[in-house]
Simulated assay, not measured.
Amino acid sequence: MTTQSINVRGMELLMAYSQNPSIELRNQLVRLNSGLVKKIAYRVSQQCSEPYDDLVQLGYLGLIRAIERFKPDQGYAFSSFAVPFIRGEMLHFLRDKGNIVKIPRRWQELQQEGQRVSKRLTATLGRPPKEAEIAQALNISMQEWQESKLASKNRLPLSLDLTVGHNVDHPVTLGDMLPDSYDQTLQHWEEDRQQLQGAIAQLETKTQAAIEFVFFRDLPRKEAAKHIGVSPMTVTRHLQRGINELVSLLQPQTPERLAS
């Protein structure tokens, strides 16, 4: 089956699910988009210690959430709509878990062995050993020992302004060491923007208009009310309702909520 035929089939299923939701149609859509979930899970697995298979399962939760919220008549490509939901489920889990930095097994073993060596040297020397003495006892370079220590300390999220080294004229921060951090940030912003845009598209028309005029165009509520054709008080009600609905739409969906 070609990519084009898959896209056509996917849109047909999405339209059918939108008109008459069923577990059978939803499962067909999940199977059809499983490649997208696995692709995102693989990328995320390269940046964390969570098993790939577990990330895939989390991704399926996000995919189901996207299927249930997608509206074919809005004109969005489903893949663009679904990516923030799939990736969001994985990142929410990793953020809640806290341990998001993947440490090579060798560095983990070096830290464990280094602790044993440090205790032994302390007993032998009658003082805490120097870092160079620990590295020598482990028969590794000082650089490798320092890298393993740094990785161990950075298992939890840290400030990107943390100094991890020095050049001739300025310190080197953790942010400086991250590859393509600016591009990754832009990508995350775009994914968040698409997810927010998709959520706003699900609101009632006048609620969408109120949010656009007040929050995006920065108009006073009285002026926004004239554009929409309602009273300023009604604009306020639309804004409050819209905010509450957006909070609900953008929250990660738990298995219990999916089953309900």
Results as ranks from 00 to 15, higher is better:
H166D: 10
S159G: 05
I140W: 08
D161Y: 01
N139A: 11
G165F: 03
S141M: 09
P157Q: 03
E147V: 08
T173D: 10
N139K: 10
L158F: 14
G165V: 05
Q146D: 09
N139H: 10
S148F: 06
L162M: 14
G165Q: 04
L158G: 00
M142K: 02
L158M: 15
M142P: 00
V172C: 03
T163E: 14
L174A: 12
N154R: 07
S152T: 06
N139I: 09
V164P: 02
T163G: 00
D169M: 07
W145A: 06
R155T: 13
T163Q: 08
S141V: 11
H166F: 09
L150R: 08
N139V: 08
L174K: 06
L150K: 02
S152P: 00
N167H: 08
P157D: 06
S159A: 06
N167V: 09
N167P: 00
T173W: 07
Q146S: 07
D169N: 07
T173G: 04
L160I: 12
T163V: 14
W145R: 01
P157G: 01
L158H: 14
Q146K: 09
N167L: 15
L160M: 08
H166P: 01
Q146V: 09
V168C: 03
S148A: 15
D161C: 01
V168W: 10
S159Y: 05
D169P: 00
D169H: 04
K149R: 15
H170S: 12
L160Q: 07
L162H: 04
P171C: 04
Q143S: 08
I140F: 10
D169W: 08
M142Q: 10
E144F: 02
M142T: 09
Q143A: 13
S148L: 12
D169A: 06
L162C: 05
D169F: 11
A151D: 10
S152A: 14
M142E: 14
H170F: 13
L156K: 02
P171K: 02
T173L: 12
S148V: 10
K149T: 12
A151S: 05
E147N: 03
D161N: 04
L158C: 11
L162E: 12
R155D: 09
L162K: 02
L160G: 00
I140S: 02
G165L: 05
K149E: 15
S159R: 03
L150I: 09
E144N: 03
